[in-house]
Amino acid sequence: MTAASFDPRREARHRRGRIFRWLCLSAVWFAGLTLVVLLVKVTADGVPWLSLDFIRNYPSRIPARAGIRSAILGTLWMMALTGAVSFPLGVGAAVYLEEYAPDNWLTRLLQTNIANLAGVPSIVYGILGLTVFVRVFALGRSVLAGALTLALLILPVVIIASREALRAVPPSLREASYGLGATRWQTIRYHVLPVALPGILTGTILSLSRAIGETAPLIMIGALTFIAFPPTSPLDPFTVLPIQIFNWTAKPQADFHSLAAAAIIVLLLILLAMNATAILLRNKYRQEL
């Protein structure tokens, strides 16, 4: 090949590069603009309705009196119980699968199933929750039944995230621990888990952030739409923010649509607070290492 026959096609190659870059950029803009439009619309509709009374009052048929007290408290109860159930179960399952389980067909079958469960539509968990928790365990339409249902819903994601975190712990750490005579329990307890904890916490909180927006499975198990008292025990009936939002958007009066927007803002703030907590926890534990 002579130098004369070599065509570098520099123009064409660079043009292709520019087009690709431009396509990627418009993908970013598309996602970003959609979000901005939604946020602006919700903020414009909802902010005038946000007030301390809106957070303190119970729902009402009169828009000016309506608030989300029972919905917020229901959501907080729900998240606390869901976290309390799914965290130990999820981390336990992940530790077993990563640290103890032999690599055989059974383990692989379990792993595949867990990954598949993460993709099951949430309404299916609602049907399961209605049959098992509400009817068989006779928990009724309680916060606990709802929390167990949502815990099952996010469990696969918690397990997967925890396993990723455990896998990221360098094997040399375990080997050093064994080398000093530590047992497997001591190694996991004092060396593996502390290192993996930030990742596990982040995964769990992000899963809870998914659970907080769930409506369908909770309506399925019979969460209530109008309730003017807060839950005081795990066996009390409840409602949650997404159900309150759903209910208000379906009303004929336009004022309720604005109330729904205000409730969406509150839900977003709770979400942001949760995600910020995830980041803070991660940074805190990282520094301590």
Partner: peptide, 8 residues
């Protein structure tokens, strides 16, 4: 774990 939602 992770439920510090002090704002609301």
């Amino acid at each position: 774990v992770g439920l510090a939602i002090p704002l609301v």
